[in-house]
């Protein structure tokens, strides 16, 4: 076969993908089956999309929480050691030390379900049943005084009726919040008469040394 023919033969087996950039279907990937999607589709939204069928009470949640969560988060969701505090913290958001808990800060209940199911308990993610997850969320609502009845049962049916206390505590990003060059041209010469050092890192002395040790303090 002549070299020319060889080239022709090769060319015939190649559909033209020169315009591939954004040109649409390339025939890549395989269709995901409903079963495949169901196994991975674990996200839950504020409008309830993604909630599985299930239910759990505060009392049931207390038991699961004690077994699976309390080692890090404390029996009453008060937090153990450096691990996150999950309850309380009301009226602290304007203070020097805000305590951002599910009750004081989180705007939507769906986030609690979504996060617990996908990543907790730490080191054994996606191991809870829907009923266990509903029960833990119910217990956390109770510990945060969002529900006050210890016989309260949370389910996929009443889930979206729960409103979190800090739902209105968020605003959209309104940066830039400092002047642009067009508004204030930065000074280049003789910009100030005197400069004084006002703060020094060494006062806190929290920089790790070569062993990673530090005499430091925790700041959060």
């Amino acid at each position: 076969m002549s070299r020319f023919l060889k080239v022709l033969t090769v060319a015939a087996g190649v559909s033209l993908v020169a315009g591939a950039a954004g040109a649409g279907k390339l025939g890549l990937g395989t269709e995901a089956t409903p079963e495949e999607i169901a196994g991975w589709n674990i996200d839950v939204r504020p409008d309830g999309q993604g909630l599985p069928e299930g239910r759990g009470t505060v009392a049931e949640g207390e038991v699961v929480f004690a077994e699976q969560c309390a080692v890090c988060h404390g029996d009453f969701a008060e937090g153990a050691g450096r691990w996150p505090v999950l309850a309380g913290g009301w009226d602290t958001l304007k203070s020097q030390h805000p305590v951002k808990t599910i009750g004081s800060y989180w705007p939507y209940l769906s986030t609690v379900y979504d996060y617990i199911y996908r990543s907790m308990p730490f080191g054994n993610a996606q191991s809870l049943t829907p009923d266990q997850t509903y029960a833990i969320v119910a217990y956390l609502l109770y510990m945060n005084d969002v529900v006050t009845d210890d016989e309260f049962e949370l389910s996929n049916e009443n889930f979206t009726s729960i409103r979190m206390p800090n739902e209105d505590g968020f605003i959209e990003d309104d940066r830039p919040d400092t002047p642009l060059v067009s508004e204030v041209e930065p000074c280049m010469t003789d910009c100030k008469d005197e400069v004084k050092i006002t703060k020094r890192a060494r006062i806190l002395d929290v920089t790790p040394d070569e062993d990673g040790d530090t005499a430091g303090i925790s700041v959060d």
């Binding site: 996200d43 939204r45 986030t111 605003i171 990003d173």
Partner: peptide, 28 residues
């Protein structure tokens, strides 16, 4: 989807608490 998920990492974390007690979200 047709709306945001408000995942933990864009509500509890990665939101910017202001002195007013309000927090900016979606500060990307």
């Amino acid at each position: 989807g047709d709306q945001p998920w408000h995942a933990r990492e864009e509500t509890s974390k990665y939101t910017d608490l202001l002195a007013s007690g309000k927090a900016r979200r979606f500060t990307w």
